[in-house]
Design a protein around this nucleic acid. Structure first.
Length: 582
RNA sequence: GCGCCCAUAGCUCAAUUGGAUAGAGCAACGCCCUUCUAAGGCGUAGGUUCCAGGUUCGAGCCCUGGUGGGCGUACCA
């Protein structure tokens, strides 16, 4: 709808240019907004105010010219001038009804695929394999997943890359500790069951013993230079850790598989080459015994240089090196047009730097779009980064379990008549959905407070509310004995609430496109929440089963059907499953 | 020191990236279940958008200067 009106306005501009009312050389951006107030019509444009300077006419006068020269269209019932020069557009509700029908018949609910398919690489989740996944990995996984699903739905070719940390100093630590245990005659593998405990024990040894620390560092060198024994042990760690991660992804419903794992170690063979190539193009400098790139853009005001360290003085490589190698791989092998990095906002400077280095060194083309999609920190009630009561970093697995347990308690309280197995099923889904939705519904870039009480609320912009809205519609269909796929008659929009619901339904594609463009799933959450709210309000005001006539009944059920499908599709894009009953 | 981000109702968050009267949900108060799932709906109240200037038809959003907080800033990622 919006894009069609935009096209209409573009045609109008062309007419005005031909009539020399507007100068030809101007660049005109056509902005069409949803109105907040019904009295302002359905859509409004500020076109007259934006172009009045170029036209050298008062905005209201120009607005009248725009209206007069607008080609006739069945979409528009009337257009009127308001305020300082807004043009308010009132849409034809018959067209709206037709669009509802069309969307209902379409698997994609009327959302078009993009004309220009891009190959988009998504760097997401990327946990450190030496530890268990914790709350910090939630956002990257969940937000990355939702944005990827949305882009995929729009027809882009998506390649997920789980850039796991599997090559750093921590692994030397683990290897050294494992060796120590084996030397003491203790079997190593049984101690791997709880990776977190193992990691903490190893870290403890690392911190308390200089001798141990040295051994750990040496083992990293051994590992990286290909010592078979080290490699074997390392592989063992990795396999266990990846299996842990996969369990979490499966529980979360995040569409990542072991095939998407492309860890830091995968770029090992190219790291030396990265250094050599930077050297060859003359931007690598020796500074304090390390090899660095200095970028003019990142000099401090006082002129102090800010380095991007590529190789440490001991010869070791850093994550900047690995990221550069990964960028080349993503462009040259994966053929990426865009690369999206769902990584903590605290790494913003790092990404600015490596993106620039990559372009300066011509590792990647100027066209490729490298985008850091930063997200804020998950906070506790105290306003500090989220920790458990004991002060440890919260393990993601435990968090999910707690959410499911709390959800179970609520289900038992709310619908005690259900059998225990169904309760469990509902609770498991609601628990996971609540955690994910709480994360997705907040603005990506800001920090947010993690609160079970908040996310498991039935009221407000929560997963439960959304799931309930869907389940309720399904239930109405069951009660009425109607099939969503077999509705007769045509949609007629009469009641104010019917019009409102229909209008909202047709905004689904704007929401999905906004998520894809900006990488902000909360825009889709807000949309679905508003949709569910409007539906509830419609449901209250417009009887479905007890409609006045059969035609009205069919029409209203069609609206309900499209609402259910939209909720389901929307939640699916967010990576959240729906329930038929709750 | 320098850089980046943030500050919106008592609380948790929005505001279509410069649009019209700043919106939701909690919490508070008042209604609506013998009638389609009340995990719902309707309504009331709640604001100097941290402060001070500036840009323009129009600023929560952009610019300048403050205040308060978070983060980053040479060999972790």
């Amino acid at each position: 709808m919006k894009t069609q009106i935009q096209q209409l306005l573009q045609q109008t501009l062309d007419v005005l240019i031909t009539k020399k009312i507007l100068p030809e050389e101007g660049v005109y951006r056509i902005q069409v907004d949803r109105t907040k107030d019904k009295a302002h019509g359905d859509l409004s444009t500020n076109l007259a105010m934006m172009t009045c300077k170029a036209a050298k006419k008062p905005p209201r006068e120009l607005a009248q010219l725009i209206i007069d020269n607008m080609p006739a269209s069945e979409l528009v019932i009337k257009a009127e001038i308001a305020g300082p020069g807004f043009i308010n557009i009132f849409l034809n509700s018959n067209i709206l009804a037709q669009q509802i029908e069309a969307a209902l018949l379409d698997e994609r609910l009327g959302i078009a695929k993009v004309q220009q398919v891009q190959t988009i690489v998504v760097d997401m989740s990327s946990p450190n394999l030496a530890k268990e996944m914790h709350v910090g990995h939630l956002r990257s996984s969940v937000i990355g997943d939702a944005v990827t699903r949305s882009l995929e739905f729009l027809g882009h070719k998506m390649i997920r890359q789980n850039h796991v940390g599997d090559w750093g100093t921590q692994f030397g630590m683990l290897l050294a500790y494992m060796e120590e245990l084996r030397a003491q005659g203790k079997s190593g593998s049984s101690n791997l069951a709880d990776l977190e405990v193992f990691y903490r024990a190893a870290k403890g040894r690392f911190d308390e013993s200089e001798e141990f620390a040295t051994r750990a560092r040496n083992l990293v060198v051994e590992l990286q230079s290909g010592n078979p024994q080290c490699l074997e042990l390392w592989q063992e760690f990795k396999d266990i850790s990846i299996a842990h991660c996969q369990e979490i992804y499966d529980r979360l419903g995040v569409a990542l598989t072991t095939a998407d794992v492309k860890g830091e170690s995968a770029y090992n063979d190219d790291l030396k080459q990265v250094v050599d190539d930077l050297e060859a193009c003359g931007i690598l400098e020796q500074s304090q015994d390390a090899k660095c790139v200095f970028l003019d853009e990142f000099k401090t005001k006082t002129g102090e240089p800010l380095p991007v360290i590529i190789q440490k003085k001991d010869g070791g490589f850093l994550y900047a090196t690995t990221d550069l190698a990964a960028m080349r791989y993503r462009q040259n092998v994966l053929k990426a047009d865009r690369v999206l990095y769902f990584v903590d906002a605290r790494q913003a400077l790092h990404f600015q730097q490596v993106f620039m280095v990559a372009k300066k060194a011509k590792f990647v083309s100027q066209q490729i779009s490298l985008e850091h999609m930063p997200f804020g920190t998950v906070m506790g009630d105290d306003g500090k980064p989220f920790k458990t009561r004991s002060g440890n970093v919260a393990k993601l697995a435990d968090l999910l379990t707690e959410a499911q347990q709390r959800a179970l308690a609520l289900v038992q309280q709310k619908s005690p008549e259900k059998d225990p197995q169904e309760m469990r099923q509902i609770a498991d889904l609601v628990g996971i959905a609540s955690v994910k939705y709480a994360d997705l519904s907040k603005n990506r870039t800001s920090n947010y407070v993690f609160s079970f009480d908040q996310m498991l609320k039935f009221e407000g912009n929560t997963a439960t509310y959304m799931l309930y809205a869907y389940a309720r519609i399904v239930s109405i269909f069951n009660k009425a004995g109607l099939d969503m796929a077999k509705l007769e008659g045509s949609v007629v929009l009469e009641h104010e609430k019917e019009l409102e619901l229909a209008g909202k339904l047709m905004q689904f594609d704007e929401a999905v496109n906004a998520v894809a463009r900006l990488g902000n799933p909360h825009l889709l959450c807000s949309y679905l929440f508003e949709l569910a709210g409007i539906f509830s309000s419609f449901y209250e005001a417009c009887p479905l089963i007890k409609a006045e006539s059969e035609t009205q009944k069919q029409s209203r059920f069609k609206l309900a059907a499209l609402t259910a499908k939209t909720l389901q599709q929307g939640l699916d894009l967010l990576g959240i499953k729906t329930l038929e009953r709750m």
